[in-house]
Design a protein around this nucleic acid. Sequence first.
DNA 1: GCGCTCTACTAGCGCGCTCTAGTACGAGTA
DNA 2: TACTCGTACTAGAGCGCGCTAGTAGAGCGC
Lengths: 333, 333
Amino acid sequence: MADVAEKAGVSRALVSIIFRNQPGASEETRQRVLRVADEIGYRPDSAARLLARGRSRTLGVMFTVHQTFHTDLIEGIYAEVERLGYEVLLSGATQGRSEQKAVEALLSHRCEAVILLGSFAEPSFLDELGRRTVAVSVSRRVPHAHVDFVHTAEGKGVRQAMDHLVELGHRRIVHIDGGTGPGSAERRRAYRAAMRRHGLESEARVIPGDHTERSGIETGRLFLAERDQGQPLPTAVLAGNDRSAMGLLMTLTRAGVEVPRDLSVVGYDDSHLSHLMPIGLTTVRQDAGLMAEYAVRFAVERLEKPELEPREAVLDPKLVVRGSSGPIPEPSA
Amino acid sequence: MADVAEKAGVSRALVSIIFRNQPGASEETRQRVLRVADEIGYRPDSAARLLARGRSRTLGVMFTVHQTFHTDLIEGIYAEVERLGYEVLLSGATQGRSEQKAVEALLSHRCEAVILLGSFAEPSFLDELGRRTVAVSVSRRVPHAHVDFVHTAEGKGVRQAMDHLVELGHRRIVHIDGGTGPGSAERRRAYRAAMRRHGLESEARVIPGDHTERSGIETGRLFLAERDQGQPLPTAVLAGNDRSAMGLLMTLTRAGVEVPRDLSVVGYDDSHLSHLMPIGLTTVRQDAGLMAEYAVRFAVERLEKPELEPREAVLDPKLVVRGSSGPIPEPSA
DNA sequence: GCGCTCTACTAGCGCGCTCTAGTACGAGTA
DNA sequence: TACTCGTACTAGAGCGCGCTAGTAGAGCGC
């Protein structure tokens, strides 16, 4: 910066003004300084910039690397953040890199707010985080924690899916659970309620799982083993999310079970891959773009008005019927 | 930091030493300072830290949000970077956020090196970037640019896939191209060479596309339209990558074409989703973990020995045969 | 001529940390 | 005793910016 200032024959302060696009420099000087900077290859150092101004205008986003729905959300976040003149820092959680670690990285990089996509963390962790900084939790709802929430009305989505299956004649409808995953408790509850409402309480069955393909695969294996022992397959499965549904589909299809003739499968999320399954996955759509928009807006608004209380946005999900669900198999089949 | 120092009754410098895990503080003081810091909720500010020490020890990673293979790479990158005591900053390219923009963000955050996953950028852009900083290009090979390369021997992979298909009796083998995507030129060339080698030159057909599901879908539609006009379907397709293969599979399967009975499909990458397709996708496996390891090591080694010339790592791909490829359909069928 | 305002610019402090060059002091050594 | 040496610590400069308070000079009305 000093080099640029000297070469352009102005003070460092003026260079600073110009690079911040602030008024206070003549058009002529502005052009000259920018030209010199370009020649030298100068680019403002955001570390120093961050340090000097109190604010970083940066939102941190914690996501799970393999969660395809998260990449849908990230796309939306980039778009909205740019609109509002902020920046984004991504930090991924993986097998060997915990959520806590990912969030720590964001905080130490001076993110003003943290957006957590589908967090699995303890409620106390979220609450503490929310008190220390502005935090938004997407998908994962933790009552009484000091964070904003953006999620879909899980109950509504599950209800639509269940009504759809019951209308098709299904009674033996199994739910693959999402474990401690975001939204799973609500989905599980809504599944149980729907079974009760349809008088299918005695048929209700929840299979433990998580939000990965693995739990779908394992459930598939379980079903096949049961079938080999003479038990009938369920006629429909409501998976905890799309990935779980895909795992199930794969396992069953490979074993010769035909979907939806022999069994219907419904997913959850409508991640961008779900409509790319060869048969098309019937699933509950969450609007990733809108969720991202809310998350960013909540964060930015709380940053600009710190006295604001955390809020909650509940979006409406929508069942998308594709090829993986169909009428109940013929009794004789 | 000053607060911590005061409350613990030591100088700021000593607090600094302790937080950098450096020798020069007694165990007793160390514990006391850490306890005080914890009480206050102090966490070293990496912006200031960055500014103060010359180095950031941070590698920037540019990736394409929806490219599933990239998430596989990222997982590997996090692991290797941690092992070497560096940090990672992710920056995603999306529809509305160009590669250039994503890279700019990384540079202004003081990344010492940039790892580009499957870049589409102009060779001149890469070369310039490589001269300004340490850059590693994964998958995309740009001869004579001043960057490290990590990629697989595309030719070998394609050859294996083609030999596999020819062995199964296929002759009308079509290639869906990856356009300007990383590796596509090499794959296209290898496809043509393989057709020639097998005496199938006259059957060679390359359909323009890119590395997304869309190009698979469009190719599927094209095939269906051709079939409706009386032309025969090809018997096998070598897709530009897994996503393209998945798009094709979806379109054809929905239209009643059975894979692999009516048509064989081979993908490329073996991204973590490809073995989750219900029928299992035959594909050319690239070892994401190993590629990530090389990329990080190249970057770090060049950072620590700046006189090092850029290098190239060519890994061996391996055909993974799953359910989407099979023998040529019966002539009468 | 004077004071006034407005534009275009500058001086220099401070953001929170790292790091070099030091000091103070007790233990060991000749 | 005088000296080194090692351990535990401190003072203070400086990293590259942003920002506040200020100046110099042009233009204006009276």
